[in-house]
């Protein structure tokens, strides 16, 4: 699980072009949206693409994203339980 969390932090930084943020700046429980990393609605769509492209998870209901994308911790737990690749 720790490896998955590190992998997710790297993917998020690279995919979402978070130029001024390093892996060690992101705590597992930091909020991804709002006061945390400050991601926006387009970033949320990119996270859905990451789930699909890299882990074979298709989010049928976008509303699910709110709980899944709370933090790296919640995202990793969801991927760990649902990944098909």
């Amino acid at each position: 699980m720790e490896a998955l969390k590190a992998e997710l932090k790297n993917k998020i930084i690279t995919t979402l072009n978070l130029e001024d943020i390093a892996v060690e700046d992101i705590a597992d429980n930091d909020p991804l949206f709002g006061d945390g990393l400050g991601l926006d609605s387009i970033d949320a769509l990119e996270l859905i693409v990451i789930l699909d492209k890299d882990y074979g998870i298709k989010l049928v209901d976008p509303k699910e994203g709110k709980s899944i994308f709370q933090s790296i911790e919640t995202m990793a737990a969801y991927i760990d339980a649902n990944r098909t690749k």
Partner: peptide, 9 residues
């Protein structure tokens, strides 16, 4: 086929 929303906008 994984269109990028961030590029599309």
């Amino acid at each position: 086929y994984f269109p990028s929303p961030a590029v599309f906008v």
